[in-house]
């Protein structure tokens, strides 16, 4: 009975893992195949040759490198903006009682539920007047709007879990409120803030609708690939899918222990 249970467990584990990992494995194989191999049929399930041809093509196509850079820049600006807006807000939510706190919290979550098309389309004309259209800052601004609700909720949760007593102790021993925040709360919540920022990075890196609509020349990687979808060969698409996924997967590895804490509040 015990052996049977153990066996069933291993089988279940394998099936679930395969379901998740196999597609990731297959896109990796496809990306490291030669152009001919991509169109060959039937394929070998295990790759015979290892080729950087597709990857070379992908990076040498016009706009790929710059869109890669653009994606990083947009994500970086988004991180900074999210940091500067979400930290004071989360501090207010977790350390003060004020009128309308709970309703504001719910409202912020609701803003995340607004469809991106509803935000992105009307923003174009607003951006044109501010000359933010086709501008990386403009994309970062809307990515910030998308990332803020969750990052504030996540960060409030992190702050709340750190006992107020620590800051009070600092204040009693002569620190100002700001110093208590900088010397106590900030270092104590650093891992959580890092996790939140990684989540924000992934949000920005992955976002495609707004980035496509708000840019023409200065495309992010997602927007670049979406834009060329009709006109590009399979190996370009595969490499695109691969390079869109890799940074995000690497980053999520670092916050794996934080995922539960971040979503526990729902």
């Amino acid at each position: 009975m015990k052996i049977f249970k153990k066996f069933a467990q291993i089988i279940t584990f394998t099936i679930i893992s395969l379901w998740v990992l196999l597609p990731v494995f297959l896109i990796t194989v496809s990306t490291f195949s030669s152009k001919q191999e991509v169109y060959k049929w039937p394929k070998n399930l295990l790759p015979k040759d290892f080729s950087l041809e597709s990857i070379k093509f992908f990076f040498s196509s016009y706009g790929t490198i710059s869109s890669f850079k653009n994606s990083l820049i947009v994500a970086f600006i988004t991180l900074i903006l999210v940091l500067f807006i979400s930290i004071p807000s989360a501090y207010a939510f977790s350390r003060y009682y004020f009128k309308g706190r709970e309703s504001l919290k719910i409202f912020i979550l609701m803003t995340r539920m607004l469809p991106i098309p509803l935000l992105a389309v009307p923003l174009t004309s607003f951006y044109i007047t501010l000359s933010l259209y086709d501008n990386l800052l403009g994309v970062a601004l809307i990515h910030t709007a998308m990332a803020l609700p969750f990052s504030i909720i996540i960060l409030s949760g992190i702050f709340i879990r750190i006992s107020k007593e620590y800051e009070e102790a600092a204040i009693v021993f002569g620190a100002s409120k700001l110093k208590a925040f900088l010397k106590i709360l900030l270092p104590l919540s650093l891992p959580g803030i890092a996790a939140m920022l990684i989540f924000t990075f992934i949000t920005s890196w992955n976002e495609v609708f707004a980035a496509s609509i708000l840019t023409v020349e200065n495309r992010t990687l997602s927007a670049h690939i979406l834009n060329l979808l009709d006109a590009s060969p399979l190996y370009f698409k595969y490499a695109g899918g691969f390079f869109l996924s890799v940074p995000a997967i690497i980053f999520i590895f670092f916050i794996r222990n934080y995922l539960m804490k971040m979503w526990g509040g729902f």
Binding site: S163, E165, Y166, E168, A169, A170, I171, V172, F173, G174, A175, S176, I184, P187, L188
Partner: peptide, 29 residues
């Protein structure tokens, strides 16, 4: 404010700063 009152306090849950060594905890004030 508390910092100007020259008082000190022992908290119920100690509030010993977890990210500082004992030395720095005592040195904080």
């Amino acid at each position: 404010p508390p910092s100007k009152r020259n008082i000190s306090m022992v908290f119920q849950n100690y509030a010993v700063f977890p990210h500082m060594k004992v030395y720095n905890n005592i040195a904080f004030g």
